[in-house]
Amino acid sequence: MPIVTLNTYLLIAGALFVCGVVCMASKRNAIGVLMGVELVLNGANLNFVAFARYTKLALDGQVMSLFVIVLAAAEAAIALAIALNFYNNHLTIDVDRADDLQG
């Protein structure tokens, strides 16, 4: 049974993070992009928790991750509201169509 070390966590967190970023960059569906964001946040959370377990960071890391979860919830609520509104106006949630603010 391989020993689970900090690096293992960091690798998994990094994989999660990269998956999230790729999801954000490739998905045209706004919901998909949101899901990418969640993946990125959770990758970061995993890092906090891992550092809390393996370093002197202790509870501070866990508290930080709790904050991030709360933040992610709030962000998801606002983002979904934006997505709904966008849908109301454009009858789509394709982010490539949301280019009204381009230079």
Binding site: V21, M24, A25, S26, K27, R28, V33, V95, D96, A98, D99, D100, L101, Q102, G103
Partner: peptide, 18 residues
């Protein structure tokens, strides 16, 4: 010239960030 960077495309922005 810089305004051309502001494409309005969310996915591009993410790519740029990365």
């Amino acid at each position: 010239a810089f305004s051309y960077l502001q494409t309005g495309s969310l996915r591009q922005y993410v790519t740029f960030i990365v």
